[in-house]
Design a binder for these strands. Sequence first.
DNA 1: CCAGATTAGGCTCCGCCCCA
DNA 2: TGGGGCGGAGCCTAATCTGG
Length: 543
Amino acid sequence: MEGETVSTFEDGRYTDAMRECILQLVTNGNVSLKKIPIVINAAKSLTRKLPERIPSIGLISSRIMLEARLIACKQDFDPSSNKGATLHQDATTKFHQQFEGIQDLRKELFPAFVSDFDALPTSEKDQLFSMGMFACRTHLVINMDPAAAKGPAAFEEAVCSSGANPHSYQDNQAGTVRLARTAASAFTMRGSQTAGTPLSGTRFSGARARRITSSRFMDTGQISPSITAQQQWTKDGTLPLPLDSPLFPEGQSIMTSELGMSLLRTQSPDLELMTKIALKLITLELLVLVERQASSQLPEGKYWNPSKELIESTKNVPKTNVMGERDMTVLDNLLRCKPGISAHNLETTLMWWQNKPASYLEDLTKPQREKLHMEARKKIPQMKCALSQHRKVLKEKVEQKLKDKHEKKEKQKARHINMRLKASLEVFSYEILARNDGASEVPAPTLVYKEPEDINQATVEKKMELKWKLEKTRKSRQAAKAKERLPALVSDPSSLVGQRFLHQCNEPGEPAQWYPATVRGIHNYLICIPKIKSTHHYHIPHF
DNA sequence: CCAGATTAGGCTCCGCCCCA
DNA sequence: TGGGGCGGAGCCTAATCTGG
């Protein structure tokens, strides 16, 4: 009887509508493949209709899901689509290793799906592959953690006579950081060593310094002063962080909390001195970091003044890694629902869940939609081939990793046995075993500070090291910039006028030295520098 | 004949539960 | 705490069916 069943199977295959329905159930509805018939039958009470046929599990997992992936990638590729069309990634890691698989797969998929991919100009190919590779804005904040951990490590090295805090573990982590982490996991609900609250109110100088820098940077970041306040500040030349900074509106000043103020209260001369040393080292580490970031974001940097094309081609790139992090939760939940799901189907489900290719399909015209389904079906053999290749590579990688891990473990075990053997031999040599009575406990390690002048010297050395590092990165940035600008300067020397540069010259018999100078004018391609009397060595200007 | 679909069987992985 | 059994979910492959 007409109206009892819905046609789902035509011309020897399932209709596109049926395919989309199944995909929505699997990806957004979280329905397991086996339970799809149950869900569809349950809907009968509302629709009073049943589909004439429902695809088998095998068909869904081996074909329809692959088609779904191609459709999702097509959406990702389609510049006219504005429906969250990008692959997500965790952009807080510098080299995006977490989702390396997806990036690799992307490279395999574009050639498989984009018609005449090989014919595309190289620049366009590169653009396709490089999209979404931008650094997350939170990089700076995230990277402050390791930088702020390096500071205390250098500090402890500088002040402890043993060269390390004897209360820390035998790893490279500073005792201060270890303490803060342990406290964070102890004092918070479901405490996490990395995400817990920062340690507060401690009398330890390293931790105090860490907390002070944390207040200054993190609290400042949270207040976000108004544009007018920022503009005013750039003109009046005051320091950015004093308590009464014009940057922050009344009542929003940083460091006014009880905790913040207590950190600045003078306690003991020793603690003051130690805190200052630690603060200097930490802030130097942070300066290295901030300069690195600023070099790409300020004028002359590659992200300053991006071209129109770049803005256009990247408008769908996520501005934060929130999506990527949320994907982790989704992945976690999905794995509980579908423990056996394959990595590629997991990724497909994720893309359908987050990018909503279903609504992308709905916005297409009927012929476009049919064409897309047909193209996806046509590409299945190629897809299967690419996926099995990818799977093979991944499997090899995993096996190699396991092998390495096993070898490392074996090595550790051997070392451990050796150490114990050595220790027991020593024990025998001292005949301690014979003396069992009244044996005193091993004394706890004590923290012995270096002599004041040694601390001073060690601190100066550490600071010099960091300053040298800063100088080195500055120099290499300058060199890179100079190299980059050289061709333009050679072709148009007059553009040099007004530029400052370093000039190396020497009096006869004296060692050469660098002097800053400014280009006043260009005559016959000869760079003229006023006020130079001795032999000249001309060098590529540094900017 | 062929593409698409189905089926069966073997296999893996995971969480839960029980028990020693 | 760790091992074993069980069930749920899915993957993969080969053999087979089916309709144009």
